[in-house]
Structures are given as C-alpha cells and as structure tokens.
Simulated assay, not measured.
Amino acid sequence: MISLECDNLFSTWREQARWLLSHQVDPCRVSWGAEQVADLFATDEQLATQNGPFQARIPKALLALLESAACYRGEQRWSLLYEVLWRVSHGDRTAMLAGDKLGSELQRRIKQVQREAHHLHAFVRFIALPATEGSELPEYVAWHEPAHDILHSASQHFVGRMGQHRWMIATPLDGVYYDGEQLLHQRRCPLEWQQLAQNVDDPHSAMWLTYYSHTFNPARLNPKVMEGHLPSRFWKNLPEGKLIPGLISEARTGKQRDGQAKMIAAKPGKRISGGHC
C-alpha cells in the first residue's frame, strides 16, 4: 500500500496522481491521509522518483470536475478522485457521469460543494467595525462555518459587491481578507482574525431583530422547507438565529391560524376577516 499526504491541496494531489498514473499504480494500492507519514511516499516498495512511461490523455472537463469535487470534506476525499481519474485515463469516461456508481458520487460531491458556496453567499453577515483613522483593520468582518473547503473560491463573490471596502471572513480552518485591491487567503486562519470576527458587536442588531420578528409570517411556515433553505447548523452564527426556535414554536402552537407574529397580533386594531379571491 502506498500512503500519501497532500495537505488537502488539489495542486499537490494532482502532482501525486500524475506520478501514480505514469507508473500505472492501481487505485486499490493507494490511500491518502490514512495515517501520518514521515515523507511524501510511505511504502515498503522501492519506487522511482521520476515519472513513469505511461502518458495519460485527460480531458479538461474532467480536471475541472475533480478540482471542484476536491473541496468536499469527507471519507475517501482524494482516493475517489484518483479512482475516477484512473478509469477515465484508461478509456472509461462513464466514471464522470451521474449514471455510473462512481460518477454519481462524484457529481453528488460537486453539488454539495456548490450548495455550500451558495450558503456562504446567503448566510454570511458582515458587521461593520468602528472607524479608526489610519487603521489597517478590515471595515467589515464575518464569521462562517462551512462544511466544505469553499471559502477561497466562493468569497470572490463579495469582491465586486463590497466595492473598495476592506473586509474579512474567518472560519475555524481558513480565512480571507480583501484589502481593497486583492483577495488574500490564509489556509490556517490567524487566531486574531478568528477572535475579531467572533467577538465584534453589531450596533444594528436590535433593529435587524425587530424587523425580522415583525416580518415573520407563521401562516406560511413550513419547517422542513425552511430547514432545507436555512440549515439549523447556521442559526448560531446568524443574528436572527436566536429568534428562529421561538418563532417556530409560536407557529406550531396556534399562531399559524392568525397569520401574524405574536407581538403583531397583540397590537390594537380592527381584525379583517379572511375572504376568497
């Protein structure tokens, strides 16, 4: 067995996979990240350091699929990619397609990565830091906990939307900082970035919570659909997250009949009976 470590870098994995293919190393003989290894290739076999004689022709479309799927965190993260690469390099392109068992898992992972990128765009909440003249601190910070390694690529979304403002997104693993001109990515998020993003106070939070609670419509609540669009794992990092369980509870205990949030229904005024259009 050949045990490899690519440090979760697609570029490193690609070089390793190219070497393996050139020596016609079957996927069943390779594992990534299964154990701690002292060097790049941990095996009792005598392996050449140079590339082997086999030259594979790989379609560009496959490389794009593999790079996207490489952002997926899960079991067999890198081994599955090599198995797909092996089959395609030997003439079996069905490994790229959803109709194939292996291709289906590849496509599922790509969809999960794409969905997680959408979650970043939808659920990041930037908070403005107090303005300090001459400071090089970001003007806006955010904390996010993605399930997959999408921060670097997906955060490009905000470059064109935040103008030349300086902003930062910190996660438990990595972080990005936009200085007004370029986007900088740190694969190991600095502790000071994490502390800054997690400990900042939002001066507008009370206003936002008031708006959110007043616009909540229990008559239209479907918890399963809501969970599909707004997974509960994000609630703890959203300002409105602490309101959601209570609002759901109110809806389930009768407020769906009123079609109003509790505090709105309690306000004085004439009740308008429902009719048919």
Rank of each mutant, 00 (worst) to 15 (best):
E139C: 07
F216I: 03
W32N: 08
Q36K: 13
R115M: 10
F126L: 06
G99Y: 01
R125Q: 14
H121V: 03
V159C: 12
E181R: 07
I244P: 00
P245G: 01
A34H: 06
T49N: 11
L63M: 14
W143Q: 08
V200H: 04
A122K: 06
T12F: 05
M1Y: 03
D44M: 08
A170K: 03
G175L: 02
A197R: 00
R77T: 14
A61M: 06
F10R: 00
T12E: 14
T210R: 12
R108K: 12
A266N: 07
W167T: 05
Q55F: 09
Q194P: 03
S22Q: 13
Y212N: 00
R257V: 12
L85N: 05
E5T: 08
E75W: 06
H204E: 14
D26A: 12
D258R: 12
A131V: 13
L63R: 07
P245W: 02
T171L: 14
D179N: 13
P190F: 15
A251V: 04
A17W: 04
L9W: 04
A56K: 08
W208F: 15
F54D: 09
C71H: 11
L65F: 03
C28Q: 06
L106R: 02
T49E: 15
D39T: 15
P138F: 08
Q76K: 12
L221H: 03
T215P: 00
P53V: 10
S89E: 04
K267W: 03
H214S: 14
V141D: 02
K111N: 08
D100C: 10
K242L: 08
K60F: 08
K267S: 04
V37K: 01
A64E: 11
T215Q: 09
P218T: 01
E139A: 14
K224F: 01
Q112R: 13
R57E: 11
E145W: 10
K224L: 08
W167D: 11
M168S: 10
I169S: 03
F123T: 09
H23M: 07
H204L: 13
R29F: 06
A61P: 00
V84Y: 02
I150E: 07
P130R: 02
H185A: 14
R161N: 06
N51W: 05
L238N: 06
N8V: 06
P245L: 05
D201P: 00
E83S: 11
S205T: 10
Y82E: 01
L184N: 11
I169N: 02
V124H: 08
L137T: 03
A64Q: 13
Q50N: 09
V37D: 00
L81D: 02
H214A: 13
E139K: 08
Y178V: 02
E35I: 01
M226L: 14
P223V: 01
S89V: 10
V25R: 09
L97W: 09
L209T: 07
